[in-house]
Write a protein that binds this DNA or RNA. Structure first.
Lengths: 208, 208
DNA sequence: CGTTTCATGTAATTGGTTACATGATTCT
DNA sequence: AGAATCATGTAACCAATTACATGAAACG
């Protein structure tokens, strides 16, 4: 039930329409808590009915600008302080590790090396972002910096782990498996330079 | 659609009934890919209908022992080698970080410190497990060791990040926020000593 | 005037969770 | 005899995804 809290969180900053919120989900929250258009509109309706939000203004194309109510702020605060984050379990990447013995050592090695490459690419993108951002003292900037740092640490950890794991497989196989290019991605996405809001966090990935 | 592949993976080792598989989900895969009883039985039916599994034997209480078919093995292999793991996005813990500015510095500090404590507890449990296991050369043991190592690295990384983030909040607040006991858990679950199969992985957690 | 952007919604489907329902076998 | 375990299934519900549907306003 975190979508509602994500919406309350975004609206605690300032009022916005469903359309505005959708864009903020795309730019800021996509990798932390993605949401689709239908979901956003649906949940906004429920939140308004429940008294957590109210339609503060109506605009041009049937635009409804939602504002958080006292009740909504209270609920957001309660969620942040009185409930524990549900830690997420499902990781397809780790599920695969579990069945790696179904592959030849080379195939397993390739999988892990590719994972390492992907993590490295992600890490690089984050570093680019980190440099390109002018960090101010606004709250979003502060939170964004925390999340970005998490992303950097996560991707670094994951790459190292995957390289270590690949080496384990290689050692056990008794063969040299590392080829010149192990299936790594030669062309890597360039680090995005523009960012609205705190895209930063959008660029961070909890699983990778 | 990874549940089906988890089932195929488990059955690639040896035939089993829905009931057996459920237990293996609980002991080995719970933190990587949890599944409920209804889901397991439902999916087994679909997989059998699709020709990926077959009922190899029928036992006492209507027990149906499923065995993987050639087609099932091929699908498992295809999944492992030809598809990329979908990286997971939703992290309630990180979503909260995004809205930490809605809290007082002390409350934010407390949240992050508690997260650090939880990670530390998890890490300790994993280390206990690591010591208590006699590692042999069986494939499950090898895979389990890879996953356990991931868990160790993840929890260590997360704890460090959370402590760093808490310190950031403290520094910005201009106050000393760290109390003698910051809301940390004084009583920590003891590390489980018994483990079936590769519980190891069951003890590893992708998010916190 | 045509395209893009803004803006809202509904419907169908999938994957997952919780709860309900049932009964046979084994163990003490 | 009674409890625990083995064993399978169905139904209701919820959250999320994809696709469909519509139209007003702004921009060029």
């Amino acid at each position: 039930m975190s979508l509602r809290h994500a919406l309350l969180g975004l609206l605690s900053d300032h009022p916005a329409s469903g359309y505005d919120l959708m864009r903020r989900f795309e730019t800021s929250l996509s990798n932390v808590w993605p949401a689709t258009q239908s979901q956003v509109y649906g949940e906004l309706g429920k939140l308004a009915k429940g008294g957590f939000l109210e339609v503060a203004a109506e605009g041009p194309r049937g635009r409804k600008e939602y504002a958080i109510t006292e009740e909504g702020l209270a609920e957001l605060h309660r969620w942040l302080t009185e409930t524990q984050p549900e830690r997420m379990r499902r990781s397809e990447a780790m599920l695969r590790v579990f069945f790696l013995d179904q592959l030849t050592p080379l195939e397993a090695f390739t999988y892990l090396s590719t994972e390492a490459e992907r993590a490295a690419g992600r890490h690089e993108a984050l570093e680019g972002l980190n440099k390109s951002v002018e960090w101010d003292d606004e709250p979003l900037s502060v939170n964004g910096r925390l999340a970005l740092e998490y992303g950097l640490r996560f991707t670094a950890m994951y790459e190292e782990w995957a390289r270590w794991a690949a080496a384990q497989i290689e050692a056990r196989s008794g063969q040299r498996l590392a080829s010149s290019e192990t299936g790594g991605a030669p062309d890597r996405e360039p680090a995005p330079q523009v960012l609205l809001d705190s895209q930063i966090v959008g660029e961070q990935s909890p699983d990778l």
